[in-house]
Amino acid sequence: MEWSNYSVFFFASTLFFVVALLSLLKTNKNTKSLIHISVSLGILLIISFVTILWISLGRPPFKTLGETRLWYALFLSLIGYVTYIKWQYRWFLVYCLLMTILFLLLNYLKPEMHNKTLMPALQSVWFIPHVIVYIIAYAFLAGAALVAIKGLFQNYKTKLDKSIIQLADNLVYLGYAFITMGLIFGALWAKQAWGNYWTWDPKETWAFITWLGYLVYLHYRFNHPYKVIGPLWILAFSFLILLICWFGINYLPSAQNSVHVYSGQ
């Protein structure tokens, strides 16, 4: 059957996820069970489709971009759901479900779509994991930076609510886990594409500096559980480095030969 039945699975699972998203807008006892039911059914549908696809292809469906996107939809919804069960982070489930729907939709519109003019080195199984893990990480860390700015504003202008640091911690721990994986996936990919894990390419260098920045935050928080302002400044500063890594390096003279600096076309 391969992809011919995909639309049925796509509409059904998207419907469940939309129901979940609407229920997430307002949580009470009734909507809570509705969230659990609809998210699990949506995930179950994706799992069924992957299983059927796997069997009918006679090989693991990991070859085309469309197939990897399917895995992404599955993992994103799973991660969102698991985090929701564990910490009740509604916003994170919302984020994951929206991303899941996006990936499912892309596959619906063009199941075998290949990004045009993707240079050979980018056509790798590592491409999507590396990029998506980073997108998720950056989303968490941007959240942490917002918390930091709010906290610093409170401290200097109004009254600091010290519990704000707990939220920052949670966001950084999640973001840090993803940024670590993104960095490692990048290294493993580089080894596969060019035979080197690490060449101190400017983007690598700045990604590594970003990683070190958050590492300082984690250690400082570990050593000083009651300090708030210092860690918030570290967070704000680390995010600044992250922004340099993300956009800024395009303007750095040291980065003109980076494999990560893309000229527009």
Binding site: K86, N170, Y173, L174, A177, T180, M181
Partner: peptide, 11 residues
């Protein structure tokens, strides 16, 4: 594996 632990355990 360690970062998965960080993800799961949080702080």
């Amino acid at each position: 594996v360690g970062s998965l632990f960080v993800f799961w355990r949080g702080k």
